[in-house]
């Protein structure tokens, strides 16, 4: 399934797309974006990469089984909820602050970001995992 054009293009596109996915996730609380979109974007990129470089190279580049992502993602999301519970707040209470950076800049930060990262990991793991399994089946 690998073609030269795709192979070449993916080298260019994949880093950009991953950057875009990360941007979408991080910016998601304040502008269109978020864990679901970022996750799907990430997944599409990874699938593109796999189609570009082929299974062997892809497996070397990404040695993780997607189920690890799903597990870690669920754990992160759940722990984000659990931490406020331990501090006496209701489950999943979000903590909002403005982080002061040097040069007078500040970053608005909500702890819900961790939750979003969990969502992202689950979405990536699920989508990539299912597509990969089916393509392995086709290739077999």
């Amino acid at each position: 399934m690998t073609s030269l054009i795709l192979q070449t293009a993916s080298k260019l596109i994949v880093p950009l797309a991953l950057l875009f996915a990360a941007y979408m996730t991080l910016k998601g609380h304040n502008a269109p974006g978020g864990g679901f979109i970022g996750g799907l974007c990430f997944a599409v990129t990874l699938i593109l990469l796999r189609m570009g470089v082929g299974p062997e190279v892809f497996n070397r580049m990404v040695p993780l089984h997607p189920r690890v992502l799903v597990f870690v993602g669920l754990a992160v999301a759940f722990l984000t909820g659990l931490v406020p519970l331990l501090m006496g707040y209701p489950f999943l209470t979000s903590y909002v602050t403005d982080l002061q950076l040097p040069l007078g800049a500040s970053v608005h930060f909500a702890s819900a970001l961790f939750f979003d990262v969990g969502v992202l990991l689950v979405v990536v793991g699920t989508s990539v995992g299912m597509i990969l399994r089916l393509s392995q089946e086709v290739e077999a």
Binding site: H29, N30, A31, P32, G33, G34, G35, L92, V96
Partner: peptide, 14 residues
């Protein structure tokens, strides 16, 4: 408050 401008995302994660 949710501490976010994107209401849809705040609804989802908060």
């Amino acid at each position: 408050g949710g501490g976010g401008d994107n209401i849809v995302n705040v609804i989802l994660v908060d």
